[in-house]
Write a protein that binds this DNA or RNA. Structure first.
Length: 417
RNA sequence: GUGGGCGUAGCUCAGUUGGUUAGAGCGUCAGUUUGUGGUACUGAAGGCCGGGGGUUCGAGACCCCUCGUUCACCCCA
């Protein structure tokens, strides 16, 4: 074992896997920029207060944050997510609304690693600040849906719920608290602990012994105000109009107080139930306000790369490994010819590679094959003398041919087309 | 934070109730008569058997600790 390895929960993404990551982010960027979203690149590090506002006194903040005091005595933290940073940026810069942004990049949470869960993990996401319109909810959800379609994931399900207006939510939580307290003996031990902290999250329990009592619990839909019901129904009918299938799941909740109205999750059909959520989001108000800005409506979602790529593996999408280069230059004269030709090709926009350390021709041909190149250019002493090169197709039955140096670029361009 | 599984070559793994120079496949590199890849054959390089301590005449195998990894719990902004 080497002396130095990655820290727990951190890993290197090497080629060719890294190419998949790039494609993933590129596909997401194309999906959302086509809908008018601009990219925001917030810093990895924020004042810890930015994140404290997100979830006061939860495990999130108390145990799972990468925080430290910097050399200027500032208490800072590596961002555990990007929504809070986006809201902080909104307050700091006050852009015109609606402000539609997308992001991608690593986040950090000090958790015990397991399948699809790392301490440094990448997410992509979008947020829209300053518009409280159910059609925007539909747009945001539809963009997530479109993205999965674009990737080729067939088995993603959309789960949807509404938490109502703040007052609805508050009434509902009070009713839940009363109900669960009356039946506390029937709850699992873990859920008893959860109840003491947040009654809403008990609904989220995946423990079978809780299922019965949860099934009989008060329903959020009985607490909706007229406005909340109208908002939610507009969202649902919008999704139907776009032919986006969904399941209303009243157990889909968010523990944090500033969530309201629409919440949703994208669930991977092939993943185990305990960790099948590959992305989620919802409408939130109050977060911008908590960070010192004006009361501002917000909605967004984030998708985790790791779990989404697991789902891609399961469904066999994204499997093709792209070739490294189109052309491979084989030079048996020592390497100077390859130096010149690769330079010319690259300047002409043609991808190419070569061998180093003056290996045997056979060895260079092997490297050419492995590179995935479509053609090899072969230069030996004969070719140097004739001021020519051999163009050898590597895929298919075509014969090789000798071509004058002056026709390098046109001949290669033709061979690749 | 809690509990279980697993750490042997770059990778995937064998390794017999503890017994002498630790193996295979893949990969890498080099050859198979002089300038041609994929297939085949030959050969080579490459291991403090995760680390530390202990038991033993003897440990890759057994015990303890530790680190890493993995699965689950927990949590999930």
């Amino acid at each position: 074992m080497p002396e130095f390895q990655t820290s727990p929960g951190m890993r290197d993404i090497l080629p060719p896997e890294s190419a998949r990551w790039r494609q993933f982010v590129a596909a997401f960027a194309e999906t959302v920029t086509a809908a008018g979203y601009g990219q925001i690149i917030p810093p990895l590090l924020e004042d810890i207060g930015v994140f404290h506002r997100v979830g006061e006194a939860t495990d999130i903040v108390t145990k799972e944050m990468y925080d430290f005091v910097d050399k200027g005595d500032r208490h800072v933290a590596l961002r555990p997510e990007q929504t809070a940073s986006v809201c902080r940026a909104f307050v700091q810069h006050r852009p015109a609304t609606p402000w539609k942004v997308w992001y991608s990049g690593p986040n950090f949470r000090y958790e015990r690693p397991q399948r699809g869960r790392y301490r440094q993990f990448d997410q992509v996401g979008i947020e829209v600040l300053g518009a409280n319109d159910p059609y925007l909810d539909v747009e945001v959800i539809a963009l997530g849906w479109n993205f999965f379609q674009r990737l080729g994931l067939q088995q993603v399900h959309l789960h949807l719920n509404s938490l109502g207006e703040p007052q609805d939510r508050q009434n509902f939580v009070a009713a839940l608290q009363t109900y669960f307290s009356e039946h506390i003996e029937q709850l699992s031990d873990a859920s008893k602990v959860t109840l003491a902290k947040n009654a809403l999250r008990v609904l989220d329990s995946k423990r079978p012994e809780d299922f019965d009592i949860i099934a009989k619990a008060p329903k959020i839909s009985d607490f909706y105000s007229e406005a909340a019901r109208t908002h939610f129904e507009t969202v649902l009918s919008g999704l139907r109009t776009l032919n986006i299938p969904f399941t209303v799941n009243e157990k889909l909740v968010r523990g944090l107080d500033y969530y309201r109205h629409t919440t949703f999750e994208f669930v991977g059909g092939t993943l185990d139930s305990a960790q099948n959520a590959i992305g989620g989001g919802g409408r939130y108000d109050g977060l911008v306000e908590d960070l010192g800005g004006p009361a501002t409506a917000g909605i967004g979602f984030a998708l985790g790369l790791d779990r989404t790529l697991l789902a891609c593996d399961d469904e066999g999408v994204f499997a093709s490994v792209p070739a490294n280069v189109d052309v491979f230059v084989v030079d048996t004269t020592g390497g100077n010819e390859a130096l010149i030709i690769t330079h010319q090709l690259r300047n002409a926009g043609i991808s190419c590679d070569r061998s180093f350390e003056n290996r045997s021709m056979k060895s260079q041909m092997k490297a050419a094959d492995k590179s995935g190149a479509l053609v090899a250019i072969i230069i030996g002493s004969d070719e140097v003398e004739a001021d020519a090169f051999v163009l050898r197709p590597l895929r298919g039955e075509e014969q090789q041919s000798t071509i004058p140096r002056s026709e390098l670029i046109p001949s290669i361009t033709k061979a690749l087309s």
